[in-house]
Deep mutational scan, measured.
Amino acid sequence: KLPPGWEKRMSRSSGRVYYFNHITNASQWERPSGNSSSG
C-alpha cells in the first residue's frame, strides 16, 4: 500500500506508470516508500 496522499497514475505521453501525491503535488517515477519514518 502506498503512503498517504500517493496514488498510481499513468503518463499519457510515455505510457509509463508514475506516482503522484495530491497532498504535496509531488510526482516521481520511483515507488514512494511507506515503511521508512520521515525525518
Rank of each mutant, 00 (worst) to 15 (best):
K1R: 11
K1E: 14
K1P: 15
K1N: 14
L2T: 03
L2N: 01
L2K: 15
L2I: 06
L2W: 03
L2D: 15
L2S: 02
P3T: 02
P3H: 02
P3N: 02
P3S: 03
P3Y: 02
P3Q: 03
P3C: 09
P3I: 02
P3G: 05
P3V: 02
P3K: 02
P3M: 03
P3L: 03
P4T: 07
P4G: 05
P4W: 08
P4K: 07
P4N: 08
P4L: 08
P4D: 09
G5I: 02
G5L: 02
G5H: 08
G5S: 03
G5N: 06
G5Q: 05
G5W: 04
W6P: 00
W6M: 00
W6V: 01
W6Q: 00
W6F: 01
W6N: 00
W6L: 00
W6E: 00
W6H: 00
E7M: 06
E7D: 04
E7N: 04
E7Y: 05
E7K: 04
E7F: 05
E7C: 05
E7H: 08
E7R: 04
E7A: 05
E7G: 04
E7T: 09
E7I: 10
K8D: 02
K8S: 07
K8Y: 06
K8H: 05
K8A: 13
K8G: 05
K8Q: 13
K8T: 09
K8F: 05
R9F: 05
R9E: 02
R9I: 07
R9V: 06
R9A: 04
R9Y: 06
R9G: 02
R9W: 01
R9L: 07
R9S: 02
R9H: 07
R9K: 08
M10V: 15
M10K: 13
M10W: 15
M10E: 08
M10Q: 10
M10D: 04
M10P: 03
M10N: 06
M10R: 14
S11E: 13
S11D: 15
S11R: 05
S11V: 11
S11W: 05
S11N: 09
S11G: 06
S11H: 15
R12L: 11
R12F: 05
R12M: 10
R12I: 12
R12K: 14
R12P: 12
R12N: 10
R12Y: 07
R12H: 11
R12G: 09
R12T: 11
R12Q: 11
S13F: 08
S13P: 09
S13W: 06
S13H: 12
S13N: 09
S13L: 10
S13Q: 10
S13M: 08
S13T: 13
S13V: 12
S14R: 06
S14Q: 08
S14Y: 06
S14K: 07
S14G: 09
S14L: 10
S14M: 07
S14P: 04
S14F: 07
G15L: 04
G15R: 06
G15A: 04
G15N: 08
G15P: 02
G15F: 02
G15K: 09
G15Q: 07
G15W: 01
G15V: 03
R16D: 07
R16Q: 09
R16V: 08
R16I: 08
R16S: 06
R16K: 13
R16A: 08
R16H: 08
R16G: 04
V17R: 03
V17E: 14
V17L: 06
V17I: 14
V17Q: 05
V17A: 07
V17W: 12
V17T: 09
V17H: 09
V17F: 10
V17P: 09
Y18P: 01
Y18H: 02
Y18G: 01
Y18M: 01
Y18V: 02
Y18A: 00
Y18T: 01
Y18S: 01
Y19E: 00
Y19S: 00
Y19V: 00
Y19P: 03
Y19K: 00
Y19H: 00
Y19G: 00
Y19L: 00
Y19N: 00
F20D: 02
F20P: 03
F20E: 04
F20C: 06
F20K: 04
F20I: 05
F20L: 03
F20R: 02
F20T: 03
N21V: 01
N21I: 01
N21Y: 03
N21P: 00
N21E: 01
N21M: 01
N21D: 04
N21R: 00
N21Q: 02
H22M: 11
H22N: 12
H22I: 15
H22A: 11
H22D: 05
H22C: 14
H22T: 15
H22E: 08
H22R: 11
H22G: 05
I23Q: 07
I23R: 05
I23A: 07
I23G: 04
I23D: 09
I23M: 08
I23S: 06
I23E: 10
I23P: 01
T24S: 08
T24G: 02
T24R: 02
T24Q: 03
T24M: 03
T24D: 05
T24P: 00
T24I: 04
T24L: 05
N25E: 07
N25K: 15
N25D: 04
N25V: 03
N25S: 08
N25G: 15
N25R: 13
N25P: 00
N25I: 05
A26G: 07
A26P: 00
A26T: 14
A26I: 14
A26F: 10
A26N: 09
A26H: 14
A26D: 09
A26R: 14
A26K: 15
A26L: 13
S27T: 13
S27E: 05
S27F: 15
S27D: 03
S27P: 03
S27W: 15
S27R: 15
S27V: 15
S27C: 15
S27G: 06
S27K: 13
Q28T: 05
Q28L: 03
Q28P: 00
Q28W: 03
Q28M: 04
Q28N: 03
Q28I: 03
Q28S: 07
W29D: 05
W29R: 07
W29E: 06
W29P: 04
W29K: 06
W29H: 06
E30A: 06
E30P: 04
E30G: 05
E30M: 05
E30F: 05
E30Y: 06
R31T: 08
R31P: 13
R31K: 11
R31W: 12
R31Q: 08
R31Y: 14
P32E: 01
P32Q: 01
P32K: 00
P32V: 01
P32I: 01
P32C: 02
P32M: 01
P32T: 01
P32W: 01
P32G: 01
P32A: 01
P32D: 01
P32F: 01
S33P: 08
S33V: 14
S33R: 07
S33K: 09
S33A: 11
S33M: 12
S33W: 09
G34H: 12
G34N: 12
G34M: 14
G34E: 15
G34I: 13
G34L: 13
G34T: 11
G34P: 11
G34Y: 14
N35I: 12
N35Y: 07
N35G: 11
N35R: 08
N35H: 11
N35E: 13
N35K: 10
N35S: 11
N35L: 11
N35P: 14
N35Q: 11
N35W: 05
N35F: 10
S36V: 13
S36T: 13
S36C: 12
S36Y: 06
S36L: 10
S36P: 12
S36N: 11
S36Q: 10
S36R: 08
S36W: 06
S37E: 12
S37C: 15
S37K: 11
S37W: 09
S37L: 13
S37I: 12
S37R: 10
S37M: 12
S37H: 10
S37P: 12
S37G: 12
S37D: 13
S38A: 12
S38R: 09
S38Y: 06
S38V: 12
S38I: 12
S38T: 13
S38D: 12
S38K: 09
S38C: 15
S38Q: 12
S38M: 12
S38N: 11
S38W: 08
G39F: 05
G39V: 11
G39A: 13
G39P: 13
G39K: 10
